Amino acid sequence: MSVPVIDACGLTKRYREVTAVDDVSLRIAAGEIYALLGLNGAGKTTAIRMLLGMVKPTSGSVTVLGTAVRPGVHAMWSRVGYLVETPSAYPELTVVENLTVAARLRGLNGRGPVDDVMGMLGLTPYAGRRARTLSLGNAQRLGLAKALLHEPELLILDEPANGLDPAGVVEVRDLLLELNQKHGVTVVLSSHILTEVARLATRVGVIDQGRLVREIAADQLAEHVQQRLSVSVRDSAIAEDALLAAGFRAARIGGDHLALTDARSIGEPEAVVTALVRAGCPPYRVVVEQDDLETFFLRVVRS
């Protein structure tokens, strides 16, 4: 049996009367994209800090890349890239200068790695910009660039989409998928964005009030995240009858809004629209909606 990339056993962190992380155990295999999913304050960042040796556990142990995490042991960190909370940078240095310093600390020579990672993360146009003048999104990109400079085999990222606009979120998601699928990089990340985790992770650990309450494989996530087709019409009574006649069962959810939860409606919304148009009751809004994070959590935690 292969050695897990991360093996955490009984991780607990207490701050006086507050237990931030409570008896969390994780085994993450090479090649996974593992997401710690939780509400803000659930303990995700504290757990990641313990994985990286930034915070000493009150109890429990962590092994990363086959080496126990403890003071004075550094060999494995040359194979790990990380970004935790707010990305750090020298504020008066430019983007390229910050990355050059980080490259030298990693023992990398020449401009090649710096230029490559700037291109990868869309930072080339900002190469001469001082770090203190960057937007939150570009500061996050700079933090990710520093994490990727040395081509790590393990990436540990705390809220990597923080501060990014929708296009930036997609870029980072595609980048992580490419690193994982083409280069075999194992990715461990935390997030409170359910939709992104569903599109990215191969396995999800749900953390609530410091405890790991459930682990869910990606192909099982859909069973826990409910979807519905939301339809807005002028007359919900007429629309409901028309849909029933066409073989669709809709439920009124207040006012002139209907919800359809069967697989056919969600997979073929155009069939629902066609039925309504033919009945003389065309919808003015049709959208597939998904549980928000809070609803998902309530379902998972209580199940």
Rank of each mutant, 00 (worst) to 15 (best):
V3C: 14
V5L: 07
V5F: 12
G10D: 12
T12V: 11
R14E: 11
R16M: 08
V18F: 14
T19L: 08
T19Y: 06
D22T: 03
I28K: 03
I33T: 12
G38P: 15
L39P: 14
N40S: 12
G43V: 00
A47V: 15
R49Y: 06
L51W: 01
S59F: 07
S61H: 04
V62C: 04
V62K: 01
T63M: 15
M76Q: 05
G81R: 02
G81D: 03
Y82T: 02
S88N: 02
S88P: 07
A89G: 09
Y90T: 01
E92Y: 14
V95K: 02
V95P: 09
V96M: 05
T100V: 05
A102S: 06
R104E: 11
N109K: 11
N109C: 06
G112K: 00
G112P: 12
V114H: 04
D116H: 08
V117I: 14
L121D: 13
Y126M: 12
A131K: 01
R132G: 08
S135A: 07
G137C: 09
A139S: 07
A139R: 13
R141C: 10
R141K: 11
K146T: 02
A147E: 12
H150I: 01
H150Q: 03
E151G: 01
P152H: 00
E153K: 01
L155Y: 08
L157S: 08
E159G: 07
P160N: 00
N162Y: 09
L164K: 04
V172M: 05
D174R: 09
L176Q: 08
E178S: 04
N180V: 03
H183Y: 07
H183A: 00
V185M: 09
V185A: 03
V187W: 10
V188E: 07
H192S: 06
I193P: 14
L194T: 10
T202L: 06
V204P: 13
V204H: 04
G205A: 05
I207R: 00
I207S: 02
I207F: 01
Q209W: 14
L212S: 03
R214E: 10
L221F: 09
H224V: 11
Q226E: 13
Q226M: 12
Q227K: 06
L229S: 10
S230L: 13
D235R: 10
S236C: 13
I238F: 08
A239G: 03
D241K: 13
L244N: 09
L244Q: 05
A245E: 06
F248D: 04
A250Q: 08
I253A: 03
L258I: 14
A259E: 10
D262F: 13
R264A: 07
S265T: 12
I266V: 09
I266C: 06
P269W: 10
V273Y: 14
V273Q: 07
A275V: 01
R278D: 15
A279P: 15
P283D: 00
V286W: 13
V288H: 07
E289Y: 09
Q290A: 01
D292F: 08
D292R: 02
F297N: 01
L298K: 05
V300T: 04
V300A: 07
